[in-house]
Nucleic acid binder design. Sequence first.
DNA 1: TAGATTGTTAATCGATTAACAATC
DNA 2: TAGATTGTTAATCGATTAACAATC
Lengths: 221, 221
Amino acid sequence: MKDTQEKKKIPQMTITRLAQYLNCLSLLPKEHYIEISSKELAAKIELKPTQIRQDFHHFGGFGQAGYRYKVKDLIAGLERILGLDRQQNMIVIGVGHLGQALANYRNFEKLGLRLVGLFDLNPRLIGITIRDVRVRDIDEIPQIVYQEDVSMGIIATPAEAAQKTADLLISAGIKGIWNFSPVMVTGPQDIIIQNEHLSVGLMTLSYRLKQAKKPVLIPEH
Amino acid sequence: MKDTQEKKKIPQMTITRLAQYLNCLSLLPKEHYIEISSKELAAKIELKPTQIRQDFHHFGGFGQAGYRYKVKDLIAGLERILGLDRQQNMIVIGVGHLGQALANYRNFEKLGLRLVGLFDLNPRLIGITIRDVRVRDIDEIPQIVYQEDVSMGIIATPAEAAQKTADLLISAGIKGIWNFSPVMVTGPQDIIIQNEHLSVGLMTLSYRLKQAKKPVLIPEH
DNA sequence: TAGATTGTTAATCGATTAACAATC
DNA sequence: TAGATTGTTAATCGATTAACAATC
């Protein structure tokens, strides 16, 4: 497999699908799936087989004509493309229900992502331990980021604190931010900021429900 | 504004952006923004003004040539398109940290979505009250769905229980499912199922971080 | 060999962007 | 009127799908 990622820009949707493929493959019972075809994988995600092959083709492909894909190779290749082939450290800021939910999310560590710090400004939370990780005051963020080589910060604070938290993370040297607060946070160009607005998902569901209820009009023309 | 939603299929990305526009507009300080131009709104979401006008055009547009958009009209129009102009009732199944985080999420009720039930099978949780909503046994789902005319079910259970929960919701008559468990759930064609895989967001962030670190090669050809 | 499969190019389809008339 | 704006059509760009050679 060639390493052609930087030659042409890979569509965002391709990356999202690669993540889905990996998700799907890692849920497969290991005994039954040594090999898998694009057709089989496509059926599971309700997609066309060509879509999968084309997505893989951006990276030179994962198999050989005539053979089906080897599940192990596929997983390893996807992990490498997505940067999950090495350990990455992350911290969570805001230890409310959402922060605790994220801290307890088992699937993250399967992806090589290790939680190395929890932070809050509520003195009653500071000192408690979740999954062997102690909750610290946010003042200690810069120190931990440096000590533990933290690459990602997850913002699970209330809206009011989100931008301040982002600024603090950036000044501490963090390059990737995953923001779960309901406001958009911004930063310099070289910082990767992903705003995960839960309400967008809910609004989409609401729209689709409304559409489904409507009588279908003349489908042609 | 015409009601042309059903004539031509609206792209998924347009719906996602409409939700973003609404989010952005509702965060605006009401005193300052009586009117807003496509240019101003575009700047806030890092988008081209034409993109916004084209998105609106699918629905006949929200303004009049020469005038800027009236924020109030824009919000009302977007809410109507997204089906948020009437109250919708929802329930959350699984009252762990994630379920409680969702139950406490204030932004949902701003969208006219009312939490009318919480369900779990842990006897220690049954009976407690969160935001005036009592936690009930999952056996009571069909009754509440019927009584309260529930249109959406949010799955916040562990992976093992997710599909069973979906089946239960569907047989109780629910038409829309928002699944936060790490496994994909499926159902009949007429049920709207949205799988919200948190790990997909994290994998995308990981990919983008990896790309950002790489030295940029010759950008042309 | 026949059937099934992947990689890859070409064709199609759809979404974004540009251009501009109409309007204030 | 000049400048700014939206709605809308046309042009461009990009992503998905189809087709097929190469391979097992």
